[in-house]
Computed example of a mutant assay.
Amino acid sequence: MVKLQVQRGDLRAVRGDLVFVPLPEGDVRAAVRRLDRRLATALARRLGAGAFRGRTDDLLVHHGERTTAFLGIGRAPVADDAWRRAGARARQEAERQRARRVAVYLGENGASREVLAAFGEGFLLAGYRFGRYLSNDDGQRCVERLAMVGETVAGTAALRPVVSALEAVVREVFRARDLVNEPASVKTPRFLAEQATALAVEIPGLEVEVWDAERIARENLAGLLAVARGSREEPRFIILRYAGAAAGPHVALVGKAITFDSGGLSLKPAKSMETMKYDMAGGAAVIGGVAAAARLGLPVRVTGYVPATENLPGGSAQKPGDVIRYRNGKTVEVL
Rank of each mutant, 00 (worst) to 15 (best):
P161Y: 09
L125T: 12
F123P: 05
A176T: 10
V149Y: 00
A193Q: 09
A193T: 08
M148F: 02
R190L: 05
M148Y: 05
G127R: 06
R177Y: 14
S185M: 12
T156H: 10
I203D: 04
T156G: 07
E182N: 06
G155F: 02
G139Q: 08
A176Q: 06
N136M: 07
F174H: 13
A168S: 15
Y133D: 14
L192P: 02
G139C: 01
E121I: 09
G205M: 01
C142E: 05
R160W: 13
S135M: 04
E172A: 14
T188S: 10
I203S: 10
F130S: 01
L199Y: 12
L159V: 01
A154V: 06
L192C: 00
F119A: 01
L179H: 11
D138W: 08
T156R: 13
A176M: 12
E144M: 02
R145F: 03
S164N: 09
L124E: 03
L124A: 08
E144I: 04
S135L: 09
R171Y: 12
V162D: 11
V201Y: 15
P204Y: 04
L192E: 03
V186Q: 10
Q140C: 03
P189R: 04
E167F: 01
F174E: 15
T188Y: 06
A126Y: 06
A147H: 00
G155N: 07
F119R: 03
A196R: 04
S185V: 12
L124G: 05
F174P: 04
L125Y: 07
V170W: 07
G150Q: 06
R190H: 05
N181Q: 12
E144A: 09
G120I: 09
D178W: 04
F174W: 14
K187P: 02
P161K: 13
G155M: 02
P183D: 01
V143K: 00
I203H: 09
S135Y: 12
A126W: 04
A184D: 04
F123I: 02
V143A: 08
R190V: 11
N136R: 14
P183S: 06
D178G: 07
L199D: 05
R190C: 08
E151Y: 03
A200I: 08
I203M: 08
V201P: 11
D137Y: 08
R190N: 08
Y128W: 07
V170Y: 04
A147F: 03
L192K: 00
E121D: 11
Q140W: 07
V162F: 07
T156W: 05
G150Y: 01
F130G: 06
A193P: 13
A200C: 11
T156I: 05
P161R: 09
K187V: 09
R145Q: 10
F191H: 13
F130P: 08
V201C: 11
T152L: 10
R132T: 13
V153W: 00
R141D: 00
T197L: 14
L166M: 10
R160M: 04
R141T: 02
A154D: 15
E194Y: 05
A200W: 14
A154M: 15
G127M: 08
